[in-house]
Design a binder for these strands. Structure first.
Lengths: 271, 271
DNA sequence: CGCGAGCTTGATGCCGATCAATGCATGTGG
DNA sequence: CCACATGCATTGATCGGCATCAAGCTCGCG
């Protein structure tokens, strides 16, 4: 997805690079397992506040939120943040890094249900049962803010903006899922991949990254699982896009050469 | 078990037929537009209270809920309860009847995203934008309880059980959607249809209906849209199931002859 | 340097889409 | 009551997109 390192485009003011691909490690290189960050970054000064839970909150509400999000957690690439069956206690806001979520059935089939980047929330599935119903796996070294769920409920009883914002986030997830159903139910391979790329770049752009160049953080197989395709089909479709001059593909480095062309692919039922 | 489903508890005695296929029409046949029912049925005495928003609420909370749900609305078969772009104001709980929701893309593709029966909530998609992002269409003459959303937010600030229950319902919708993604992304036609039938019968059973006999309220085309298949494929698959002795199919009348056989189909990746 | 995970590319076959015709139920007007 | 229209379902024949199987290829890493 994003620039390999640095050259982070135009994030906000405030501390901390929101640049996925970079974690904040001051002095203490790779420390073991879960960590509570010694220096705190409040929601109120986080450069992700316009993408995350704090959207639209007033100053005083924001300060309340700061009290809620007390801990961070590092998740190394390949590790799971939570897995199916785990007791549900917290939601997680991605601070840096990149995740996938996937569900799996008894018989071993599995399906990637989403990819999450900075500012996006993980764990909403757990509310329904008090257990998580999917796995969340870091696709690169990542950092999340831990949001204890019972405290969030409590606080959102007091602050209506927070309550409303939280409901919007859940609803948005539902709407997003419906979009994926549309994709899986009625699009052909090229349309799916085009829609996927446009969605990724759009979200990256909202985070201040280039609209035309990205580094995929996931394998062809993971893309395929998300899109209901086999990895070979994903690979072939990338190659086809390249032949047609829509993309420049070098492994996981993608340059979008003709965004309008991709867009045309997405909204044209056939041909 | 990975069928996309709501696990719904025990059916219930009580007033009002929750029977899909039957609507309550006393005297006043097709009256114009929206109607406020002259006789009221409170949530606290509704026979759907174990399937709907009131689940788990204590007596006093329930009485509060009664004050919230003041109006009903009749929706005739074929009419829409709301459509994409409509301003969002209320959620709707299906009291009697049967609905489908569908999203559509610019280019006219469309996708059924769900079927809703008595006790299920409609309209959660609207929260994210203050506009609905899908159409809800009655597949038979239906009646819904209107739940003004701002009042629900207000009330759920006061009653934590209600708040929690509402969050669970939203989360359950997300989990259900993930199940559908799994189905669309990784199952073959027979598996999809089998999963669909098992899910339907389970939900009907939770409402006190037979586990083995059902009347489909939707066309082959609508089933196909939901399952990402063409109507001919749905029809052929029904015929195949009949040949194999799994079902007895007479148009929309379905008898399930071998539930275990269907179940086996669903959880066996291949062969 | 060699190993392995991930990616690309080719050859082949199958599942489900598509096109087309017929059947069946319901409803309407003559 | 029948003739006819309409909407939905079934069934057949054919076709095409994507899966599958099978090599190689690339690149990062111990």
């Amino acid at each position: 997805m994003l620039t390999p390192l640095h050259s982070a485009p135009t994030p906000d003011t405030g501390e901390a690079s929101g640049c996925p691909g970079q974690t904040i490690m001051r002095g203490m290189s790779t420390a073991p397992a879960i960590k509570i960050e010694p220096f705190k970054v409040a929601c109120s000064s986080c450069n992700l506040r316009e993408l995350c839970l704090p959207v639209g909150l007033s100053k005083p509400d924001l300060e309340q939120l700061d009290s809620l999000v007390a801990t961070r957690r590092q998740v190394a690439r390949g590790d799971t943040l939570f897995r199916t069956g785990d007791a549900f206690q917290s939601l997680y806001a991605v601070r840096t890094g990149f995740f996938k979520t996937c569900v799996s059935s008894e018989d071993g089939r599995d399906q990637v249900t989403g990819f999450q980047m900075a500012g996006e929330l993980l764990g909403l599935d757990g509310i329904s049962n008090d257990r998580h119903s999917c796995d969340a796996v870091a696709l690169e070294d990542s950092q999340v803010c831990v949001i204890p769920y019972d405290q969030l409920e409590e606080l959102s009883r007091e602050f209506t903006d927070l309550q409303h914002q939280f409901h919007k986030i859940m609803s948005r997830e539902i709407v997003r899922d419906h979009g994926v159903m549309l994709l899986l139910g009625s699009m052909r391979a090229e349309e799916r991949l085009a829609a996927f790329l446009l969605n990724l770049t759009q979200r990256l752009q909202a985070r201040g990254f280039s609209a035309s160049s990205l580094v995929l953080r996931m394998t062809r197989e993971e893309i395929g699982s998300y899109l209901g395709l086999k990895l070979e089909t994903v690979s072939r479709t990338f190659s086809k896009f390249q032949e047609e001059g829509l993309l420049d593909v070098k492994q996981r480095q993608i340059q979008i050469l003709d965004q309008a062309g991709l867009q045309r692919l997405v909204n044209s039922s056939n041909c």
